[in-house]
Amino acid sequence: MPGQTPLTGRTALVTGSGAGIGRAVLERFAREGARVIVADRDAAAAEEVAAGVGASARYVIVDISDETSVRAAFENLGAEGWAPDVVVANAGVQLFGEDDRVADLDLEVWRRTIETNFTGTFLTLKYAVRTMRDRSGGSIIVVGSPTAITGEGADFTAYSASKAGIHGLVRTVAAGYAADGIRVNTVVPAYTETALVTTISDDPTAHSAIVGRIPLGRAGTPRDVEGVMVLLASDDGAFATGASFAVDGGMSTL
């Protein structure tokens, strides 16, 4: 219809959208016509982002590693008329010990990483699927990583393992719920310059080392990721499910 944008009429929830890629994607969804839900464990950041978007946004405080918190968020949203038909599972952590290769990896770093990244994504999908089954379908987009598919994660054992698990989880859930009209896909960004990675972007040596491994010769930006997210959230991506979309400058494919 005239005047409509790709996400008009949709309600989209983005976890970890108080900052970084999550925030950029959520704000782009709002510009494309969606009602948006800022889901973050940082209450001040979530409130700020929602206020910046305006009346078409609200926020929920959620710890994705806590099933009670995730269940309450989805149930409360449904009761208030904000049940999402688009969910982006973006929240995650990247924790470091003194040596993160497997022989010396601290067990607590492993546990916390898996609990947040893998179990947290599982819980997000669990309650997103329950919500979408009741609404005859929807789109779930999970943020993966090149470290799940290549040797890029050689020094990040826990993080790489958690992301590899996520990639497998997406394929399984996509196959299991296709008949319910629920599409599930993975978007795989490379190193993306946001306010959260200033420790790298402000270090010329570290920045050059990372960019040097990206065939297109530059770091990613949130804008590089947003467009693919809009595609998968909208009717333009209606025939895509169980797929992995690399937005990594060629890092995982060349």
Rank of each mutant, 00 (worst) to 15 (best):
G181E: 02
F118L: 15
T8I: 10
D155K: 06
T124P: 04
D180Y: 06
A24P: 04
A46N: 09
T205G: 10
D104L: 11
D106T: 05
P6E: 11
T157S: 14
G237V: 06
A243W: 03
A246N: 14
V60H: 01
E47C: 12
A164V: 08
A233V: 11
G137T: 09
T198D: 14
R130S: 10
A50Y: 00
T241R: 01
T221W: 06
T194P: 06
F96W: 10
A34E: 00
V170G: 03
G242I: 07
D236M: 13
L13C: 06
V228M: 14
R35H: 11
L107D: 12
I210A: 07
L231G: 04
G16E: 07
D203Q: 11
R135C: 07
V88P: 00
T15P: 04
A243R: 08
A89Q: 06
I64S: 02
A91W: 02
R35L: 04
L107Y: 10
T119L: 10
A219I: 02
S252Y: 09
P6K: 07
G120I: 03
N76F: 03
D224Q: 14
E27L: 11
A44N: 11
F239A: 12
G217R: 05
D180L: 07
A12G: 09
G22S: 13
S145Y: 01
P6T: 09
A83G: 08
E108V: 08
V129T: 11
A246V: 09
I140P: 00
A39T: 04
T157I: 09
A34D: 00
P189L: 08
A39R: 01
T147H: 02
F74M: 03
V88N: 03
M132P: 03
V70P: 01
G81P: 02
D155G: 11
G9F: 09
T116S: 07
M229L: 15
T116F: 05
L123K: 02
S252L: 13
V93H: 05
V87H: 00
F239D: 07
P204A: 12
V187T: 06
H207S: 15
E32F: 02
A30S: 10
L254D: 13
L231C: 05
A30T: 04
G16L: 08
I210N: 05
E98Q: 15
D106N: 07
I141Q: 01
V88L: 13
L196A: 13
T5C: 13
G97H: 07
E32A: 10
P204I: 13
A178P: 00
D42A: 07
A158I: 04
T186K: 00
D42T: 06
R28C: 14
G168A: 14
S244P: 05
V14F: 06
R111V: 11
D134F: 00
G9D: 12
S208M: 14
G153S: 07
Y127K: 01
T241P: 02
I200A: 05
A79Y: 08
V36K: 02
A39P: 00
A45R: 12
I61G: 04
V49W: 01
R10N: 11
E98L: 14
M229K: 09
N90H: 12
T199V: 13
T199K: 13
R183H: 06
E75D: 15
L216P: 00
D235H: 12
T124I: 08
A72T: 14
